[in-house]
């Protein structure tokens, strides 16, 4: 119980709702109790759990602090908020993770999301960050995604990188003149914060693209008269086979892109992102890399606006 609470960030609820609100402490108690109730997972029938954590009937707990009316009990009223909490967050994660949904199927995906939100409720004012700890959760509790945990993890990392690429910070781009002015041994660059470098065990860039195209076709077909015929024509997206890829998820002119990278290029960019001086970063690519390759890669990265001065 204590470790579960630590993960949620919530302090333990009071044993009973305060009978009056005289102090800020009383307000905190009331809000903490209600929050604990709202974030409790729903029953299989999408209802408020009938028993509270101390074994009392939930009806008794609800009656302590919520007024009933002639149509709804206190329990019913809390249940409305409990449902809205879960439905809202599941909807957001549903929309943000089409690839993961395709890997797991809708039912398994929903079970994963429920377990994830129960352990890691939102700690941010914005729903944009809701999926931030999902890769960590999949590593910690692989049973929710088994037997596809490795693929699910790769897809989740890729989909979170898209969120970062969509609205992450863009710093001023480093100019070729600034690079030319500084000796390579002293030049420290940085990677734009919106660029994510991913070494993945599956080609999930192609997979997620195919899933999105399929979903778009389904939406279009569902709006047509001959819906059934068109839907049968839409191909299933098969899960990818294990294959190592290196990919940068980024944006260009505010559109999302994925760029496959050769391993030495990936290692160089990783070294740059880690703050290594340019000379050391080039060395990180390995001995087999030819100077013309390095030159070509840097030209491309500069053109994409990926490199910026280190803060």
């Amino acid at each position: 119980m204590k470790s579960a609470l630590r993960a949620t960030g919530l302090k333990p609820p009071p044993k009973h709702a305060p009978k009056r609100l005289a102090t800020t402490g009383d307000v905190v108690k009331l809000q903490r109790l209600m929050t604990h109730i709202l974030v409790r997972p729903l029953t299989k029938d999408d209802g408020l759990q009938p028993t509270w954590i101390d074994g009392r009937p939930m009806t008794e707990v609800a009656d302590e602090f919520i007024k009933p009316n002639d149509r709804l009990t206190a329990f019913d009223r809390l249940q409305l908020y409990n449902r809205m909490y879960w439905f809202r967050l599941i909807d957001i994660m549903h929309d943000d993770n089409p690839g993961l949904r395709a890997v797991l199927g809708d039912r398994k995906f929903t079970r994963l999301v429920e377990a994830y939100i129960a352990k890691y409720p939102s700690r941010s004012f914005t729903l944009r960050n809701l999926c931030e700890r999902l890769p960590q959760f999949i590593r910690e509790e692989p049973e929710w995604t088994a037997p596809h945990t490795a693929l699910a993890l790769a897809v989740t990392r890729f989909e979170w990188a898209q969120t970062v690429a969509f609205d992450g910070e863009q710093r001023p781009v480093l100019s070729p003149a600034a690079i030319a002015r500084t000796p390579p041994g002293r030049l420290r660059l940085s990677l734009q914060p919106y660029v994510s470098l991913l070494a993945l065990d599956f080609p999930v860039d192609d997979y997620v693209t195919a899933v999105k195209q399929r979903d778009a076709l389904r939406t279009a077909a569902s709006n047509t008269v001959d819906r059934a015929r068109k839907l049968t024509r839409i191909k299933r997206v098969t899960k990818p086979r294990r294959r190592r890829i290196y990919v940068a998820v980024h944006r260009l002119e505010n559109r999302l892109y994925y760029k496959r990278l050769e391993r030495p290029a990936f290692l160089m960019l990783q070294a740059i992102a880690a703050g290594q001086a340019l000379g050391a970063a080039v060395t990180a690519g390995g001995r087999r890399v030819k100077p013309e390759q390095v030159s070509g890669w840097f030209t491309s990265w500069m053109g994409l606006g990926w490199l910026c001065p280190r803060k």
Binding site: T8, G9, L10, K11, V28, Q31, R32, M34, T35, L38, V39, Y81, M84, Y85, R88, L89, P121, S122, R123, S124, F125, L127
Partner: peptide, 12 residues
């Protein structure tokens, strides 16, 4: 809508 830094994203 929040307590202890945990957000419900609801207007309670």
């Amino acid at each position: 809508g929040s307590v202890d830094g945990t957000y419900t994203h609801d207007l309670l």
